[in-house]
Design a protein around this nucleic acid. Structure first.
Lengths: 226, 226
DNA sequence: CCGGCTTGTCACGGCCTTGTAACCGAACGG
DNA sequence: CCGTTCGGTTACAAGGCCGTGACAAGCCGG
């Protein structure tokens, strides 16, 4: 699902938070101090950072500021973890760029809820188009529905994901390996020829609209407009 | 249908507006000055106020402001009636809380149209609809009641929430995880197959109306209209 | 304290999806 | 013009997904 960097100097807290997030289906990366946090934030490109306010050496607020200064990590939302519920700290944290805060002790539910909310807000405001229309072809992502000439086309889950992945990166050629990563999600046990079979099934089902699916010999596939 | 309070000091105008609104099927209450308007607004709880800008003693703008100050009348939409088309007045009126304005002389059609539009906007923006009707299926959210072909269907709390969650996001496919989040509220201990069991129970109870509950293999469930 | 209702889990089975292998035509390079 | 490589096509077996029935634990009213 989403990758989360958890920063806390107490191993117990790290363990607890990590466990709950993993339970909720998140991928978890940890860091024990500010320097490590900044390093891992750049290296692993997490979708969200859970940052303890109280850290040795570098303060949590400093880490937050540093994250914001680095263009590579600036857009990553930060949730501050703090034991003090003091309003000053909250405001300060928000002013310094934290997107939300949770006070210790927190319930796992609350934590997961905050994380999910923040991620949802981000992805929503990132605003991927919900509907892709190319001539007679219409792809409605939330409805999981594809039509060609107003006629419904029945696609399986994998076929749909393959089509949308190509359509969202239209124009750009995607290698089979790339597609396996995006559509099959890092299941690199899978043969690259599998992609070909799925492309064939897609083309067969899409009839006239198959012309949007272009093969680039020796490289991969691409979605062509027009 | 809806109750409308018309405020104007000229009896002729009152008569004219009242007649047209009644013709259009509205219930009409009248007031000849600001004091009476405020009194009747509190007493009769109209769905909308049609307010002349030029009033003796208390100005229309003052009446509008007063309506907004009183919590009992604050949410009622106000349409301002004015002879001067001056932009300043319009902005002022809107800033002071009027929701729309109509300039005199106005056509009855225009007036009724504005009233209808404003009422529609209000009920729509009042957030979620209270009743969802799809052919033979009727879901009454505040009453926690579902009927199919005018026949009551007895749903448990979970079943009802599952149905309304799907119906409110109708069209969109919801993954099992998403449904667990929305219906079971972040109790992430629960098995995703539980959703299937509840869907089965829902379908069983809903008889003919089960056709609205659509399975999207490999993805989740969705509520389909028609 | 009992009995019924709600609710989460599990096992079973059919069907569809899906990954892979084999075959073959097309493209490409020399 | 031929050989090689790449990708389209076909067929198939394994496995996943989901509907279904059954069941036990929890909860609540009587």
């Amino acid at each position: 699902m989403a990758k989360i960097l958890v920063v806390d100097d107490e191993p117990d807290a790290l363990e607890l938070v990590g466990f709950n997030l993993k339970q909720a289906g998140f991928e978890v990366v940890t860091a024990a101090d500010g320097a490590e946090a900044l390093k891992k934030a750049r290296e692993t490109a997490p979708d969200l950072v859970l940052l303890d306010l109280m850290l040795p050496e570098i303060d949590g607020l400093e880490v937050c500021k540093a994250l914001r200064r680095d263009p590579a990590t600036a857009p990553i939302p930060v949730i501050m973890l703090t034991a003090k519920a003091a309003e000053i700290d909250r405001v300060l944290g928000l002013e310094l760029g934290a997107d939300d805060y949770v006070t210790k002790p927190f319930s796992p539910r609350e934590l997961v809820l905050r994380v999910r909310n923040l991620l949802k807000r981000r992805t929503e405001s990132a605003g991927q188009p919900e509907q892709l229309v190319f001539g007679e072809l219409c792809i409605d992502i939330p409805r999981h529905m594809v039509t060609v000439n107003r006629q419904r086309v029945d696609l399986t889950a994998t076929e749909f994901k393959l089509l949308t992945t190509l359509a969202l990166r239209r124009g750009r050629v995607q290698s089979r390996d790339q597609l396996l990563q995006d559509v099959w999600e890092y299941d690199n046990v899978i043969d690259t020829r599998t992609v070909d079979t799925h492309m064939r099934r897609l083309r067969e089902k899409m009839g006239a609209a198959a012309r949007y699916l272009d093969t680039v010999r020796g490289v991969g596939y691409r979605f062509v407009e027009n």
